[in-house]
Simulated assay, not measured.
Amino acid sequence: MPSPTVILKGILTAASLASKIGGMPAPNTGTPSGITDKARWFTMTLNNQTQWDIQYVTSYFDSGRYFTAPTTVEPFKDMEFSGCDKDGSIGTGVSGGSAFKIQIPTTDGGYETINFAVGWSNPFIGSFKTSIVLSNDPKDAYNQIQEGTSSISSDKFQGKDTDDNSVNVQINFVAESAQHMICTITETEPEN
């Protein structure tokens, strides 16, 4: 059921949204120079398939550090960040979480904020893990890391597209565990 308390504005029409997503290049899954010298490391690509910025908020580390820190991701772009074990550490890996938010303009001049966090881990012993949660606390995402793929969806919101038609909007999140992790954030227009 769509949220009755907020009306989003300026939503791309379904055809325009599909065209923008279809025109995106494949996600960047490169390896930063020098990171493979570390004992434990990962890269995470945030693939933003929405018309809004995804803003980096904060992080939590159980172990390790960023090799390349996260930043804001522009609409229909991707951003890669990476982590590794701390310099001089012995018998540790890299584990933690990163929090982000999407602020969607509303017809009343405000914003509807969708908070989410991605958990990630390449432990000294064990396998790659990741998670995605609807939270502004990166530790929540870290506490739910798992092998494989995790997914979650936002509430449905009512809105008006750029042709002034009423639509519903939902944001879907999928995170995949691997050395080169990918988190895809997609804007969809589901039925009621």
Rank of each mutant, 00 (worst) to 15 (best):
I171P: 00
N143P: 02
M24D: 03
F173C: 09
Q51G: 12
T43N: 15
P75V: 03
P138R: 07
T184V: 05
S59T: 02
T162V: 10
P4L: 08
A15L: 12
G97D: 11
S151I: 00
M181N: 00
S150H: 07
P2D: 08
N165M: 06
S82G: 13
V118W: 05
D53R: 09
T68M: 10
I171K: 03
Q49G: 06
G22Q: 02
K38Q: 13
S151P: 00
I104S: 07
S153L: 01
G10M: 04
V118G: 03
A175W: 01
P105Y: 11
G93H: 14
L46H: 00
T71G: 10
V133E: 07
R40T: 03
F173W: 13
G88W: 04
E176V: 10
I152N: 09
Q103H: 07
S153Q: 08
I145Q: 09
T50H: 05
S59F: 05
D62Y: 13
M44F: 12
Q144M: 14
F76H: 11
Q49F: 11
G97M: 12
L12M: 15
D140Q: 02
Q144N: 15
F81R: 10
E187L: 11
T92I: 00
S131I: 06
I125Q: 14
T58H: 07
F128N: 11
T186C: 01
I102G: 08
G148E: 07
S98M: 02
N48Y: 08
D85P: 01
Q158Y: 08
I114P: 02
F124Y: 15
Q55H: 12
F61R: 04
D161V: 06
S82Y: 15
I21A: 06
K77T: 08
T58V: 12
C183R: 00
Q103K: 14
Y66L: 04
G93L: 15
G126V: 11
E189N: 14
D137P: 01
S82T: 12
F42R: 09
Q51H: 08
S177I: 00
I21D: 04
D62Q: 14
V73R: 00
D161P: 02
T50I: 02
T184L: 05
